[in-house]
């Protein structure tokens, strides 16, 4: 290997990191906070177990427990629901003055020319953008469908792992276990679910409205600092 080869490889790696820093930083942040949740959740459960005269659980046992899984999946489902609703909702719903909204009067799925689909697809468009039939329809909605699909799977996982965690707690309290149907109609399931949904919906509403009047210089989530409050669908 020559020094030039090494420099070239380092340069490519540096460029890759710069060009993908948004995804990489958030992915690493996700892993770090998940590890933190694992440690804090285990400590909390062990406090309860020891106070009841029961043996504490090890880190691996907690990482594979329903207690940890339900706490993780209840947050996942609400985040993916938030993005699913935002992606589908912003097709039809508008907010005057918000960079999160399309311009007033453009509600709907828009024309093939505006969306560069069908015969209006260009040479650099994805292949399925010009595909006729179900492939074109599917690709045109793929982002929302995948987000919605992950939401449903996470919510199902929350219900299954929640049933197990809830029943383990009921047996600890000398109560009989319930089935999946009993759990998904229980206060525990809906309390966990709705406490997450309300915060996600509040965050979306805040973002849509606050971004009318406030700015973040350099962020594509904000209008340019000098853009008028009335400008809709303008990103910085």
């Amino acid at each position: 290997m020559t020094p030039a080869d090494g420099d070239g490889r380092a340069g490519r790696a540096g460029r890759f990191l710069r060009e993908n820093s948004l995804g990489l930083v958030f992915l690493l942040g996700f892993l770090a906070t998940l590890a933190g949740q694992l440690l804090a959740g285990r400590a909390e459960l062990n406090n309860d177990l020891v106070s009841e005269g029961l043996p504490p659980v090890g880190l691996l046992a907690y990482a594979t427990s329903s207690d940890f899984a339900v706490d993780v999946t209840e947050n996942w489902q609400s985040e993916y629901l938030q993005f699913f609703l935002y992606i589908f909702g912003t097709v039809w719903l508008l907010q005057r003055g918000s960079p999160e909204s399309k311009e007033i009067g453009r509600a709907g799925t828009e024309s093939d020319r505006e969306q560069r689909t069908g015969t209006h697809a260009r040479a650099d468009s994805p292949r399925w953008a010009s595909a006729p039939g179900w492939r074109g329809v599917l690709f045109s909605r793929s982002l929302g469908l995948v987000m919605g699909g992950i939401f449903l799977l996470s919510w199902l996982a929350q219900s299954v792992t929640g049933t197990a965690a809830y029943n383990e707690e009921r047996l600890r309290s000398l109560e009989g276990p319930v089935g999946w149907g009993g759990y998904v109609t229980s206060a525990d399931f809906w309390s966990r679910t709705l406490q997450n949904w309300q915060s996600e919906l509040l965050a979306v509403a805040s973002m849509a409205v606050l971004s009318i009047y406030l700015r973040q210089r350099g962020s594509p989530e904000s209008k340019p600092v000098g853009a008028p409050h009335s400008a809709t669908g303008v990103e910085g």
Binding site: L54, P55, V57, S65, A164, N167, E168, L171
Partner: peptide, 23 residues
Amino acid sequence: VDVWGDRARVVLEGDTLFLSRFP
């Protein structure tokens, strides 16, 4: 016999026991 994680309930003809898994 119902087992959820490290807890169990065993229903017998004349009694019911609750158990926990220890080392």
